[in-house]
Design a protein around this nucleic acid. Structure first.
Lengths: 200, 200, 200, 200
DNA sequence: GAGTAAGCGAGACGGTACGTCCGGTCTTTGT
DNA sequence: ACAAAGACCGGACGTACCGTCTCGCTTACTC
């Protein structure tokens, strides 16, 4: 049985330095060339301090992102609800497309995704900590649309999110096409066609 | 200037041994732990023989797959066309889902995808050599459906394929849900709703 | 300026535990693999408690031995003096040879010697605290022999001790020959030949 | 079973660079602070190249010395034989004392000795490759003295060498006294007294 | 007897070196 | 001339200890 470190004694300054160094280095050299040694050196930290608290390089990257997000709007993420579902969704999808297209976030997000593909545990953690809260907000907006009769009342909302986002995600991941605002709009339109209420 | 090896003198036996070893090792230890040295040792080949003919580990994996596919039906891939678009698509989608769900092909396909995510060039090559021919066959079937009035005549067929496959691909890649035949069916149904001809 | 710990407050129980642990570990794993961490762990003591009271690993080993010796006859070590110098010396030399040959004391004595070879200060301390008193007793016996006319009156007694003991020490240290009682006897005989009074 | 490297393919330039670096570093920083990494770096060599050919740090040091000696008078070491045993021995012993007293050779010889004390195998190798040939030459001189009636005919020559050299060795190793020419002379004189032929 | 300061067990920390593994290059020896 | 074999330099891996540094806790000594 491996000895467990005592989290109460953890040095918060070191933790922050490591996460920051990890983020910076992913942006600079890319995920494939990222090394624990380089993170430790950049953070001014002993390697053991990384190995003590994280089981893998992927876990460090993951925490680096988690820390970023938690620094954001702590609770209650809410999507715009103007009453016009199509307009609201287009706005959100365009924003997502723009974020993906931003070269600055390119490397780190890609790193995180590769790590999730390799490590199911990490992927589950990602969903729980980062994706689910956001998805819940999105589903809340869709439920509001269902109540307003703009969306089929019996629509599977998880499927709905997949329909909306998976094509965008795939294009970005495999670089199989441009992530333009027009493409975002098109996805929303097709989605609405698929999910609109039956004419009765 | 690097010296170019002469492909005419290439040892076909070594090439096959390398590709086979690469496939086997990816299945056994996973992509992340796959090493060139191990491939060379398993194939009974000098490391240089690998470096001489392939620029990267990803390229070897890619060729290993390409070789597999080319062993298949060399030309003229065609999808079933019974006249019933929904049934035909469900069959194809169920087959795709089953292939993804098969643990045997899990590791290698995942390896190939990670490599494509990291290496745009490889991704392009993949599309050109493997994906496009298959996609063309799929689009042929959809065009047939358009002519039969089962699909909107002005539908963007590339978008159509994304709509159909991206959710499946995303679920598999991130393990975010089960790849059941029912799910395959559902995707086809939603797709058809989104792409059906306007009632006029 | 380093803060000096107050010896009055020193925990005797910890001190003993450390010395005992050090002795045990030297026997078990040898000097080269002895670590401060292991001593602390074995003794159930914080590392700092060792660093507070000893300047080096060698100093701990040294004290471990000192403690052992001080447990013995506190003052007034005296060699047997039966009047027969040769018999008396042979007894003492055989005992020394036997002690060196004992596998139990092998590792720790070797450890102490290596430390002395590396650290002149420690060697001086060793001579002052452990070797000199013993040597003084030996020289007292030799002086008695000089008075009895069994040894040259002008013999250099320090040189005499070197002549007697150095060959034994060298054999033991470098394992260059067996440490038998016969060898001990031979050394005494040769020594007496070299140091006997001139016939004149 | 570990794979054995093929000595035929060994890079002689690397071997020399490693041995030279080892010698230099022992002189500069001492044996205790000598590291394999530093040797590799100084020699411009990968660490693996050291680990491939030597089992331990001590073995490297040992080879470094062996190489030095082998560069010397390849075969047939002979001591001076003027017919005057005392004068010849004093010359040799004074030279040995001077060599030990030389600060330049201090660190490396001490390193080698510590390593031999710790590693019986290394000590045996040392005797076989370095000490025995030299000792044989010394014994040859003593045999010549026996034939000339200057030394007891039945004297044990191995013991004789111990008697002569062990006190010197011990003084040097433990720094227990000065290594003056006078001391060397005294040792020879005492030795001759102990080993001279019986008056008959 | 309360307050305080030291030593204490514990163990996290910034580091250094370990010995191993592998990447990519170069050299030797067939064939 | 390519291939197998594998030594080479380089560099990251994950581990072990170093000696230092906080933590609370216990244990004297002081007031």
């Amino acid at each position: 049985m491996a000895k467990q470190p005592n989290p109460a004694r953890r040095n918060e300054r070191s933790r922050q330095a490591i996460l920051t160094a990890a983020r910076d280095l992913v942006s600079e050299v890319g995920y494939a060339k990222l090394t624990i040694e380089a993170i430790a050196a950049r953070a001014g930290v002993g390697k053991q301090t990384i190995y003590r608290w994280w089981p893998s390089k992927g876990a460090v990257i993951f925490d680096a992102f988690l820390a970023l997000s938690e620094a954001g709007p702590e609770q209650g993420i809410a999507l715009p609800d103007t009453g016009d579902l199509e307009a609201d969704l287009k706005m959100v999808m365009r924003a997502t497309a723009a974020e993906f297209a931003d070269p600055a976030s390119e490397a780190p997000i890609r790193a995180l995704n590769i790590e999730m593909i390799n490590d199911p545990g990490l992927a589950a953690q990602y969903r729980e900590k980062l994706a689910d809260p956001v998805n819940e907000a999105k589903k809340a907006r869709l439920r509001s649309a269902q109540r307003a009769g703009q969306l089929a009342a019996d629509a599977d909302l998880d499927l709905a999110l997949e329909l909306l986002y998976a094509p965008l995600y795939q294009r970005w991941l495999l670089r199989s096409g441009p992530l333009t605002p027009e493409y975002a709009d098109t996805l929303v339109e097709v989605f609405l066609k698929a999910m609109r209420p039956e004419p009765a």
